[in-house]
Write a protein that binds this DNA or RNA. Structure first.
Lengths: 149, 149
DNA sequence: TAACAATTGAGATTGAATCTCAATATCAAA
DNA sequence: TTTGATATTGAGATTCAATCTCAATTGTTA
C-alpha cells in the first residue's frame, strides 16, 4: 500500500475527536481508498480489498465510508449504476463532471467563472451554499467520432 | 382532473410511434402527474392516485414513468429520500435547484450565463452535452434567519 | 492491566425498483 | 363491428444496494 501521511492523521484526529476507535479494519479501508485513487463505490472497494487478501466485511466498509466523508477525505460524487460513488478529495480542488452516456467515460472539469456565478445566484436568493454538484451528460469526443464513421 | 390538451397528445403520439397502447391506466397516471404539478416520486404518485380512488398498481406506475420521460413530458430531477424524483417539464424552461439541507425547501433557478459557460466548457473538451443537472445544497433564507436568532 | 465502550462480521432486514406470468385490454385491419 | 396479434395489467416474487442486529472481539483510557 502507498505510504500515507497527513490524510491518515486527519482521519485519526476525526475519530479521536468523536470518541471513535482507530481499528485495523478502518486503516485497511483507508489505505484501499488511497490506492484506488479514483472513483469507487462500496462494493468495488470490497472487491478491491478482497483481491489484495484484505477481506473486510461489507458492513464495515459501508460503516467506514460515512466517517471518511465526514472527515473530509472523500466526497460522494456521481451516482453510477445506481450506487453511491465516491472520490478522494483530500488535496484536490473541487471539480465537476461530464459523463459520456455511451461509454461511461468521466471527464472532470473546473471553471472558476461558473463557480463564481453560482455563488452570485445564491447570494441573490439569500441562500448560503455549502456544496454543489454539476453533472453534464452527453457524448465524449471519442464516441462522437466513432458515431460519425 | 385538470383538462389536458397538447401534452396528452404528445404522450399519445409517443406511444403510437413506438407501437405502444394508450390505456386507461396510462391516462390516469398522466392526469395524476398533471394534477400534482410539482416534484413527485413513484410512490407518492401511487398514494396520490389511491387518495383519489384511482388504484393503479405500483408496477404500472413504475412502468409508465419512463415512457413519460422519453416522451419529454417529465424529467428525472433531484434524488430525494433516496428515491428518484421527477417533475413536469412540458412548457417549462429548464432550471436548476437549490436544496435547503435544513428544511428541504427546493428553490428553482435559471441563469443563462451559467448555461452558456457550460456549453463553452463542453465545446472546449469536444463533449456534446445532452442534459445536465446542477444542485446546490445549503441553507435557505428562512433557515438562516431562524439560526441567527 | 482492567473495565468500559466502540467495533466487527455473518447474516437478516429494509425498501425502491424490477420482473414474472396468466388474464385482460387495445387497436389496426378486415 | 369483429377479430386476432400483441401490448398491458396487477399481485406477488425477486433483485440488489444499503442498513441493521447482536454476540464476540478489540481499542482506549486511567
Amino acid at each position: 500500500m502507498k505510504k500515507t501521511g497527513l490524510p491518515l492523521e486527519i482521519f485519526r484526529n476525526y475519530l479521536r475527536k468523536k470518541g471513535l476507535k482507530f481499528t485495523r479494519e478502518r486503516l485497511i479501508i483507508f489505505n484501499g481508498i488511497i490506492s484506488i485513487s479514483k472513483h469507487f463505490d462500496a462494493d468495488s472497494l470490497c472487491e478491491f480489498l478482497k483481491g489484495r487478501n484484505k477481506n473486510i466485511s461489507r458492513a464495515s466498509v459501508y460503516r467506514t465510508i460515512p466517517l471518511l466523508v465526514k472527515s473530509g477525505l472523500i466526497t460522494e460524487s456521481l451516482r453510477c449504476n445506481n450506487k453511491f460513488s465516491y472520490e478522494l478529495t483530500f488535496g484536490r480542488r473541487h471539480h465537476d463532471h461530464m459523463v459520456c452516456v455511451k461509454c461511461g467515460r468521466i471527464i472532470e472539469f473546473y471553471d472558476a467563472r461558473i463557480e463564481k456565478l453560482q455563488n452570485e445566484v445564491c447570494k441573490k436568493r439569500g441562500f448560503e451554499p455549502l456544496r454543489h454538484k454539476l453533472g453534464i451528460k452527453g457524448y465524449c469526443r471519442a464516441c462522437l467520432s466513432k458515431m460519425r464513421k
